[in-house]
Design a protein around this nucleic acid. Structure first.
Lengths: 148, 148
DNA sequence: ATCTCAACTGCAACCAGTTGCGACACGGGG
DNA sequence: CCCCGTGTCGCAACTGGTTGCAGTTGAGAT
């Protein structure tokens, strides 16, 4: 199991090359979409966009590539509290973990970075002697506008 | 790591009655299983056990009942970082939210309660003016034993 | 005890994600 | 430049979870 840690946005393909991951036609299409897309793509959208670059791309290749990127720590997988059905969403991993908040009424997704979150993770690592590889904090509730 | 229960253990049916939820043969079977089971049941196990109490229980009824209990805030749904496939796990909600840690090597699931987690949630509510209904923090990594 | 109707159920068809398999292509070595 | 092995691909079949529909049932009102 590989270690995570990313730094800059932008060059997924370069990362894969560095790590000796074979680059195929299909992966180029999928990575191209991930690099240029705005956040929170689901697998079906990703498939559709990738097929515009390479029509031969199959569902299973998309899922296999997502699993690969997850394992490399290059992307994060989100549920967004299952607000829009059962599926998952994907986003490029940034240098800092962030919390996702999903409004149960209007469906808006918000992000939040917190030092306290970092402190909490340190506490878990120390108190439980647990080496954290990946973490996911998702919150469902009502945003400022909808709780009025 | 046993945690203090809400009040009386095993009164899901009473909760449902209080809230005016209709009680059926099938729901009685499903709630019975949830009340007596140890934690982290998946839907398939729940279905099998419930069918021993009422053979007519269908998959879809199990899922519909789980959704109902989720919405009532009586149970929590967990991914456990998809360590054992794609499915979900369910547990009765206790008085205090807890963090789930899943070891990516041995598959062990650990739980942890933290004041810092409570502080983090307060921060989100204040700084983002977001009213929290449900929250889920899951961590994947290596437990003390496996990171040696 | 019976009536009534919204809520609930089983079924079957469907969406989301995974897997086994034989065919294929990337890219390093000759 | 071509060969070759291994990693990857598309396909089809499968598991986990959801949904529309038509028939049934629980429980409050009479």
């Amino acid at each position: 199991m590989p270690l995570p840690q990313t730094e800059m946005p932008g060059r997924l393909q370069a990362y894969c090359a560095e790590r000796g991951i074979r680059m195929t036609q299909q992966r180029r299409a999928i990575l191209g979409v991930m690099e240029t897309a705005s956040k929170h793509l689901d697998a079906a959208q990703l498939l559709r966009k990738a097929q515009k670059l390479d029509a031969s791309v199959d569902r299973s290749t998309v899922y296999r590539t997502l699993r690969l990127l997850k394992r490399q720590g290059l992307i994060d997988e989100l549920d967004l509290m299952h607000i829009h059905g059962e599926g998952h969403y994907y986003e490029r991993k940034l240098n800092r973990d962030h919390i996702h908040m999903a409004c149960l009424r209007c469906g808006k997704i918000m992000e939040f970075v917190s030092d306290i979150f970092e402190k909490l993770k340190s506490q878990v690592e120390k108190d439980c002697r647990f080496r954290i590889v990946v973490s996911r904090l998702e919150i469902g509730g009502y945003c400022a506008h909808c709780s009025k």
